[in-house]
């Protein structure tokens, strides 16, 4: 009896702690509401319970218990669906939309985090059952650190050099350095862009990075994150002030124009460097023979 109590309670505790630690309201600005936290913590609790019970149940030759794990997997696929629906719905009213790729990325992460919780609970529960609870505590701690470290994806600053770019007009055409952004007819709009517009150039480090920046979902994510973090000088009826990212076809460089409320270039560069690289944007042409040879 003692053994079960230690194994399951430790497993559940570590599982819930994991879920809490990865639920911080971070750069994604989501979830931002107590109800969101409750939903995800409760789902995390369910995942932790399932994970923690698995090893003791198996040890008692209760093989049916394992089928519960598959039930859980179905549950958590629904989490992804739920997140996707919610975010896609909310995206319609965002001044600068996240875009479908970013939404898919976030929902995938929310699903994966539940599996992570389940695995950690499984590990801690198993260790506590077969060895001593002190060892379980240590291994749980290590697993937590490992999870935080491993679950960190790359950010834009790791794939591209982010630097300021000069904003200028040639007639009605807006350029950031030599990259054409758009044609703006109205003088009033051009004056605002001259006054408030900040230009940024993203130079990819290699061919893989060039492919990442070429993905338009990735560029929408950059525009969204930058505008959320610095505020955006735009309303629903001023589409001209939507942040834009355009690609230089010759070099794969990407230029960005944004009219933030906080006109602080340093902070803008920081915000852009810390935008996550979306899983769906990752392409690795350098891993293929043709891509590698073509790269020189």
């Amino acid at each position: 009896m003692e053994k079960y109590t230690a194994a399951t309670s430790l497993g559940i505790a570590f599982g819930v702690i994991t879920r809490y630690l990865v639920l911080r309201s971070d750069y994604r600005q989501y979830p931002g509401y107590p109800h969101g936290y409750i939903t995800h913590l409760s789902l995390g609790l369910i995942a932790a319970v399932l994970g923690a019970l698995a090893i003791p149940a198996l040890a008692e030759k209760e093989f049916t218990a394992v089928t519960f794990l598959s039930l859980a997997a179905t549950q958590f696929r629904d989490v992804r669906e739920m997140e996707r629906k919610t975010l896609a719905g909310l995206d319609l009213t965002n001044l600068v939309s996240r875009g479908p790729d970013y939404i898919e990325d976030i929902s995938r992460i929310f699903e994966a985090r539940n599996y992570l919780v389940m695995l950690i609970a499984l590990l801690v529960g198993g260790v506590a059952y077969y060895t001593h609870y002190a060892i379980a505590l240590v291994s749980g701690g290590l697993a937590l650190i490992g999870a935080r470290y491993l679950m960190h994806g790359r950010v834009v600053g790791q794939v591209a050099q982010v630097r300021p770019g000069k904003v200028h007009f040639e007639g009605p055409n807006l350029f950031v350095e030599d990259i054409h952004m758009m044609n703006l007819a109205r003088e009033e709009v051009r004056q605002q862009v001259k006054k408030r517009g900040l230009g940024v150039i993203l130079e990819p480090f290699d061919d893989d990075a060039r492919a990442i920046l070429g993905n338009s979902g990735q560029r929408m994510a950059i525009a969204h994150d930058a505008s959320v973090q610095l505020g955006i000088y735009k309303d629903v009826d001023t589409a001209e002030f939507t942040p834009l990212l355009r690609r230089d076809l010759d070099t794969g460089r990407v230029a960005m124009i944004i009219l933030p409320l906080e006109m602080d270039l340093e902070c803008l560069l920081l915000a852009i460097t810390r935008v996550p690289v979306l899983e769906s944007a990752i392409n690795r042409p350098l891993k293929s023979r043709a891509g590698y040879r073509a790269a020189d």
Binding site: P172, N183, L184, R186, V189, A239, E240
Partner: peptide, 11 residues
Amino acid sequence: LSRITGGVTHD
């Protein structure tokens, strides 16, 4: 027109 329609004016 651009304010009313939410469009962008190009020259």
